[in-house]
Nucleic acid binder design. Structure first.
Lengths: 160, 160
DNA sequence: GTTCACTTGATACTCAGTCTCAGGTGTGGG
DNA sequence: CCCACACCTGAGACTGAGTATCAAGTGAAC
């Protein structure tokens, strides 16, 4: 099943109506390969000449966040974004700081590490969140290529 | 040296004037054991009948964030807060979800784990952020006591 | 077809944070 | 001591994200 279908199914399974508007939001959300903001969705809706209210988009995102189909993310810039993700498994996000593409990362060893930190500090850890930012393979390759070509010519570094 | 002094020193070392307003912000910041928002500082300033502009507080916090004396944090609620922290070492934050107290946690093994995740996904990781939320020892003790003693007597929890 | 709960868009609102600008202040040079 | 100038400040307007409200629309069940 495609992403849009999965989102709609999640809605219905939770007892919500899969109204045209919500289907639209599901489509818009599924169409992003990475993170997006509510404003992005509105903008894209507007471009496709679909009339959908601001409040409706926020409500739909809230709903999807509740269903854990999307998750809220805090970008290093301090602004909020959303990413589509797998609702069934605790995981974290790896976000490309260049193209915005995002991948789920399994919790793996982190759980053990978090446990240990909790024990060491005497805290009862209830939640943890790991966010990773960097260049995805494609952007890293592009950056290297650009640096290889450009630095020799201009003496300027592309990576700071 | 106390916290306030350290903050002021950091300002001066970076070439900024330690004006009365900045000293005040430093004091307010140092007086918090945990995380706080800009609004908290303004409120406390107001309570102590000190006249300080909103913009000034934001500017001072920006400055301190630049100097890495405080760090911005994203609470699970989605709102932003600040915490005082050690500017000299990469670390993460352990925040008590009950009293708001915050502790620095050394990066430790996490660096290796992050490296490995990057390698596995082919990402060049540039930044990572781990945030831990839970009950600090004091609140955990209080919660346990309340659960054991008070619930039987009053049916009401003391910690919210 | 009626009813009723759910959904919607418009719009007003709140709140954090930024921007601007005129005025205040500290500091260094003379 | 005075002046010039850069730095700092408060007020308040502004922005943008997100929320609240409300009347109207819609779908589903009976």
């Amino acid at each position: 099943m495609n992403q849009t279908g999965r989102i709609i199914q999640a809605l219905e399974r939770a007892g919500y109506q899969a109204t045209p508007n919500r289907r639209l939001v599901a489509q818009l959300v599924a169409a992003t390969g990475g993170h997006f903001t509510a404003a992005d969705l509105l903008e894209r809706g507007r471009l496709e000449r679909v009339n959908i209210g601001r409040a409706t988009v926020f409500r739909a995102l809230d709903l999807l966040t509740d269903l854990r189909v999307v998750e809220r993310l805090d970008l290093p810039s301090g602004s909020h974004a959303y990413v589509v993700c797998d609702p069934d498994e605790h995981h974290h996000h790896l976000v490309c700081s260049s193209c915005g593409h995002s991948e789920d990362v399994a919790d793996g060893e982190l759980a053990r590490l978090v446990d240990e930190i909790g024990r060491r500090h005497g805290y009862q850890i209830e939640a943890h969140r790991l966010e990773l930012f960097g260049l995805c393979p494609a952007c890293a390759t592009a950056a290297t290529a650009a640096a290889g070509g450009a630095t020799a010519a201009t003496g300027e570094e592309t990576v700071h």
